[in-house]
Amino acid sequence: MERLGLGIAWTALVLVILFLLLPIVVVIPVSFTEATVFRFPPEGFSLQWYAKIRNVDGLLGALWLSARIAALATALSLLLGTLCAIALVRGAVPGAAAITTFMVSPLMLPGLVLGIALLQAAREVGLRDAWWSLLLAHVVITMPFVMRTVLGSLSLFDFAMVDAARTLGCSYPVALWRVLVPNILPGFVSGALFAFIASFDNYPVSMFLVDVRTKTLPIQLLNYLEISPDPTLAAVSTGLIGLTVLVLILCDRLVGLRRMASI
């Protein structure tokens, strides 16, 4: 009986891994196809779709915009999120547990609702600039990811170390910088990674805030797909996969994926 049960679990594991990996694996060969349609298996080999990325109107611009918004939003979230987390862990904040739950739940609101609400709010305060509204919205999107990992690392951090640094001659902010930051670096890196990705591929919130000249990558890609569904998208996706793998390798070098995954 036990063997049978384990066998079923094993099969389930294999199937789920295949299910998770297949779409990602399929998109890579398709990006090198000679055919003009998005079809598997690919026909022949060419780099034409990679070459075409540069010629599609607004695609590179959107990539650059998304990268900048994601990087800035992540940086802001890291700074603000860490300060909030320290206050929640150390500051004897009334209702800290409830606030923590609220800030950690990644977007308790559906993205759609949040997008509409942010659009309304931006209008109310007279913020018409798409770039700034996108940045603020993406800080809202990324904050929970940062909060979750930073709070996780902080709960394992012994604040006596900060006290020790203070008695050795560091002021409180310097002690945080020299002792707390290096020790919760894995939390920072994995939080930043999740936050960056969440911002980079966000569609439902950004949708409400973009304008004609300011479009993020997911929105630009979807627009393009509606007009000409050719393998350019596969080429873009493959590029993003490559980038992600690169970042993961860097993170592994920096702090170790095991340490990151355990947070």
Partner: peptide, 19 residues
């Protein structure tokens, strides 16, 4: 403030810096 007192402390669990 603590950082200007020059008072040494050995903490209960030592609070060494693991990094």
């Amino acid at each position: 403030p603590a950082h200007r007192r020059n008072v040494g402390v050995v903490f209960q669990n030592y609070a060494l810096f693991p990094h």
